[in-house]
Amino acid sequence: MFYIHCPYCGEHREEEEFHPKGQAHIARPQEPESCSDEAWGDYLFFRDNPRGIHHELWVHAVGCRKFFNITRHTVSYAILETYKMGEQPTFTAENPEGRPSVAADPASLREGVRA
């Protein structure tokens, strides 16, 4: 069971307070009517299933009710970071160690953000 840091509440809470909502950063096309059927189908149905770093949308369902993003490793289940809507991840498939300034922050290590 995950231990999730809600970036809005600023606290770690048990997974049962949260709901997962699938892959993060799936933007609805601005002009759906000009999308091809294929492009619309990709937006609707196609999702990544990576072995490794994955960005996920979660909601603090029985807490602040805010949606936010989690960068999670799908093998170790380690949560590398959580970040608010509109923000970009520090840890990515291309940059798995994260931006140095963040990765080296001992405070985040202690709080188990990288548990």
Binding site: H19, A27, L57, V59, R65, K66, M85
Partner: peptide, 13 residues
């Protein structure tokens, strides 16, 4: 309720 919130918070803030 969650449906309304997700669209408001993630697409149309």
């Amino acid at each position: 309720m969650e449906w309304l919130e997700i669209w408001h918070q993630t697409e149309w803030p």
